[in-house]
Design a protein around this nucleic acid. Structure first.
Lengths: 353, 353
DNA sequence: AGAAGCTCCTACAACGTTGTCGCAAATAAA
DNA sequence: TTTATTTGCGACAACGTTGTAGGAGCTTCT
């Protein structure tokens, strides 16, 4: 049997019905110009022959693709997964399609991807920048073509486009003060991608919290990590192996906290007795880590939903002002054992082993 | 300034160059019919005016969309993230685009999605079934339209399409025997979605391992869980709260192991002393859980890559036989503390506390 | 009865490409 | 010089839709 039965088209359907194909087209879209009997005939036949409109032709004609692109660095952590989920949930409601592109934190790829999105493939774009992205001409090119663009999380600060973020600066303060309140005297800040807006804001929160408590920031306590995990581990090892090591670590991304856990195991440092740890993370199992990890958790799903909602708003009344220029959602600080004050510590006090 | 500068088309470009648009089209695609000088002129102008071909028009004409769809249940766990990563990495190499659709484990949505993919939107489809999916007529409809379809992980056993899986049956055996070897006498099996092929195979592995060790399977030790976490917790609580509770738990999915951890904390059961736990999981932090979690880890990224490679193969020489009918990748069992034999336990032997 | 207005349908020109065909002009072969 | 052949370009017809314009047949109003 023919495994390759061909696609039904409007014309073929029309021929089957002895109608002009414009009549059939209108009947399918429930136009008032067509009699009810004809509509029913057409609908029945379309169903019988399993006719589906060709989205390419339709999009070309209507100059609308009903498709958006999501451009993100990765999908391998617990943040972008829920974000995609949020985006997709709205897209499905609005009957849009979602293209996904990963930059792998590589600006060249980001640029290449934006080129692909320039000519009608999508009606709008959602972006979270790669950690390398410094210039934004490729993004401005998209705007010049009139394609709505919404940033989330890793935004391009200087661009005139809606942005959905979390309260990174505040959380930077809160996390730092949380460690201070629990007895830390010397807090290290681990970060990646210093040119990313989120990194900056989190660090500024950290610095301002220290200032507020009259603590002089120490450059040696600020670790600028990279995509190279081995190198990061080495940096952390140096930091924590040092005799006058910090007694607290505030990691701006999850993986650096995990590295910290690993290095502590290696160096026989006890969390939280010797070192308190807190980090930005959406890990679902933070509560089950050993010790359970205190986190600042971003509302990832909601970010996806909100950003997508703004984008669809923009797409649907193109040219109008966006509904929101900047939306800031609140993350929550979840205290767990990794940052617990030591005086309310384990069952029996170990002397000096 | 006009924020909405219009898209450059072939015709406009041709007018600028005083050439016919077919000439320009050919020049851009480096046709031998066009002189080198003309090509250079065209290329230069195209670059200057930032011309990009309209993919909708091009796809319509060529009857190829250069796009594939990935239809999966969720993205919120550590399995589908890496899978997407693998798929996308090949797609990027081959210059394909990736549409993503989530079924949210809902068969109705799966059916609706397949409808959308019927008419030229995509050149091929990759699927992992929803846990509800029992019938496959919607998938056969796709095949009848001649759209290549590749399954991965949660496959439709009975369908004639390439399938990429892991060695679920074997791992079911290995995990069960691992628990037996570490001293378990009574092992519970926690599963979801019994009509899913993976659940079945994992369970069969479990059952056959018991048989091999002359242990009579006990129906009360096989928990068929659902999407409702509260209910699942209740089931697990009953199982573990019972005086003659099992001394081992083999969870076929990660979340059931996490629930088990939570319930053990609640019931003051010690893992692994009172209960040994192992599960299928791609969690990156399994080693840092308390206790560290023994897992069977699937090669998710590779699965994505392999499945995508097979799909592209199929797409590019449509109608031919697929390169592979069935591909089975090996998962690895990673022993950690949650399943450690109790006799080779902590540093100093605690008597009977 | 004639004008005006409905109702229901068809014809046709887009949308932006690509590929086939045809045809000049230039070159090569006879 | 005549006859093939090649080189370079343009005309044109698709691809499968949608929306506008038009028109035949009927009813309704003056």
């Amino acid at each position: 049997m023919a495994h390759q039965s061909f696609n039904m088209t409007l014309k073929q359907l029309a021929k089957e019905l002895n109608l002009s194909f414009s009549t059939v087209s209108k009947a399918l879209r429930d136009s008032h110009e067509i009699s009810i009997e004809t509509k029913n005939r057409v609908l029945a036949k379309a169903k019988a022959l399993n006719y589906q409109v060709n989205p390419l032709a339709s999009s070309l004609r209507k100059q609308k693709s009903k498709t958006i692109a999501v451009v993100i660095p990765e999908v391998v952590n617990d943040f972008f997964g829920p974000v995609i989920n949020g985006i997709e949930s709205i897209a499905q409601e609005k009957e849009y399609h979602v293209l996904i592109y990963l930059t792998h934190e590589d600006m060249q790829k980001e640029v290449a991807i934006t080129k692909l999105l320039q000519n009608g493939r999508v009606d709008g774009i959602m972006m979270s920048l790669s950690e390398q992205t410094s210039i934004t001409t490729h993004l401005e090119a998209l705007q010049e073509k009139g394609i709505p663009l919404v940033f989330f999380d890793r935004i391009a600060e200087q661009m005139d486009a809606p942005k959905v973020t979390t309260d990174d600066y505040n959380c930077g303060i809160k996390a730092t003060e949380h460690l201070l309140e629990n007895g830390c005297k010397s807090i290290a800040f681990l970060t990646i991608a210093p040119n990313l807006s989120i990194s900056n804001k989190r660090m500024n929160g950290y610095l301002d919290a220290l200032k507020r408590h009259n603590i002089e920031p120490d450059e040696r306590l600020i670790l600028s990590c990279t995509g190279d995990d081995a190198k990061n581990n080495e940096l952390i090892r140096q930091l924590l192996g040092n005799p006058n090591r910090p007694d607290g670590v505030f990691a701006s991304v999850e993986k650096l906290a995990i590295s910290t856990y690993a290095i502590c195991a290696e160096l026989n440092l006890n969390i939280p007795e010797d070192l308190k740890v807190i980090c930005f993370s959406n890990m679902q199992t933070a509560a089950f880590l050993n010790p359970s990890l205190s986190t600042i958790t971003q509302p990832a799903f909601e970010m996806g939903r909100e950003a997508a909602a703004i984008l669809f708003d923009l797409v649907e009344k193109k040219g109008k002002q966006p509904r929101v220029e900047k939306m800031v959602l609140n993350s929550v600080l979840v205290e767990r054992n990794s940052s617990k004050a030591t005086w309310e510590a384990p069952k029996n006090i170990k002397p000096q082993s």
